[in-house]
Simulated assay, not measured.
Amino acid sequence: MGMDTTIEQPTQARLVTGEGREVPVRAVLRYTANDPLAVFLDFPAEAALHGEEITWTFARSLLDQGLRAPAGHGDVQIWPYGRTRVVLELHSPHGMALMLFQATALRRFLVRTYGMVACGREDVSAVVERGLSALFGGV
């Protein structure tokens, strides 16, 4: 394949603890042309509760909205925090995590994803087909 179909951008996040302390955490923002509506956030094993790496998946449009105004409900919520940072609030069965990211890093990542697959040009039919075949036990 001539064109690289995945973007990976390592980034530094800060985990806000229950006591309000900020703990640095490494994470990787990932985007793939094969799943154009989603962005992936990979945390290494040492960042996760159970010592295994964990990936969060959410809509690219949610990240776009959350850089400007509070967005999302349910498992992933994103909102601007001050002028330079963005909060990701992640909910799992194990609890809730508040992560702070530099807005510039998230914006740079987003711009790179749009360079690969423009907004509104995502081939959703392939995604739907894949989702349905997974659902109905297709190949």
Rank of each mutant, 00 (worst) to 15 (best):
residue 65 Q to L: 14
residue 64 D to S: 12
residue 43 F to K: 15
residue 67 L to K: 10
residue 68 R to H: 14
residue 34 N to P: 05
residue 18 G to N: 14
residue 34 N to I: 04
residue 28 V to Q: 11
residue 50 H to T: 07
residue 39 V to M: 12
residue 26 R to W: 01
residue 47 A to W: 10
residue 32 T to P: 01
residue 66 G to Y: 09
residue 52 E to M: 13
residue 53 E to T: 15
residue 24 P to D: 02
residue 49 L to A: 14
residue 62 L to Q: 09
residue 61 S to I: 06
residue 39 V to N: 04
residue 34 N to Q: 07
residue 48 A to K: 03
residue 22 E to V: 06
residue 64 D to Y: 11
residue 61 S to A: 14
residue 31 Y to A: 07
residue 41 L to G: 12
residue 60 R to L: 09
residue 39 V to H: 02
residue 25 V to Y: 02
residue 57 T to D: 01
residue 37 L to V: 01
residue 55 T to L: 09
residue 58 F to W: 06
residue 31 Y to W: 09
residue 33 A to V: 05
residue 32 T to Q: 05
residue 27 A to T: 08
residue 60 R to K: 14
residue 65 Q to F: 06
residue 31 Y to R: 11
residue 67 L to G: 03
residue 66 G to N: 12
residue 60 R to C: 05
residue 35 D to L: 04
residue 17 T to D: 02
residue 14 R to A: 09
residue 35 D to H: 01
residue 33 A to D: 02
residue 44 P to N: 04
residue 50 H to N: 15
residue 41 L to A: 13
residue 36 P to I: 02
residue 40 F to I: 00
residue 57 T to A: 08
residue 24 P to H: 05
residue 64 D to R: 14
residue 67 L to M: 12
residue 25 V to Q: 01
residue 32 T to C: 02
residue 48 A to H: 03
residue 15 L to F: 11
residue 36 P to W: 00
residue 65 Q to G: 05
residue 36 P to H: 04
residue 26 R to T: 08
residue 30 R to Y: 02
residue 55 T to E: 15
residue 23 V to I: 15
residue 45 A to S: 15
residue 41 L to C: 15
residue 20 G to A: 11
